[in-house]
Amino acid sequence: MSDGKPVGIVLVSHSAEVAASVAELAKGLAGGAEAVPVAAAGGREGGGLGTSAELISAAAASADRGGGVAVLTDLGSAVLTVKALLAEGDELPEGTRLVDAPFLEGAVAAVVTAATGAGLDAVEAAATEAYGYRKV
């Protein structure tokens, strides 16, 4: 458990619409999850498909309530940009972690778990476990 501080969730996609919609979907499926800060960082600054380090840093700062920040990404440059920012050490809030998870299913699992008051380790585990959710 966290010490009462919610885990923040950051969703990084190549598309602004995908990031925002997945955030909305995850919060909706979590029954609102008002207490969980969920921030979307989609596309490039000023529009267009891609990844923006500035948008990621801003989203992480806005989702940070002191309980750690779980970052979920889609593909390629989204993953690499978050890793590069984490390697820098001072561009993302303390306790920010890149979570290895499927983007949509992982986001839902992360937000639902964070809404229970769980800490970052539990949120990360739930998001990663979403890889095992078989549909057929």
């Binding site: 490039r44 267009g48 891609g50 990844t51 923006s52 380090a53 500035e54 390629g76 440059s77 690499l80 940009t81 890793k83 590069a84 920012l85 390697a87 820098e88």
Partner: peptide, 21 residues
């Protein structure tokens, strides 16, 4: 390197950014 990570917008940004940084 920091500029490349911030502005490229594709995988080349973090990769070249990391190389130079």
């Amino acid at each position: 390197g920091r500029q490349l990570i911030s502005t490229v917008g594709g995988a080349a940004g973090p990769l070249y950014g990391t190389l130079l940084r």
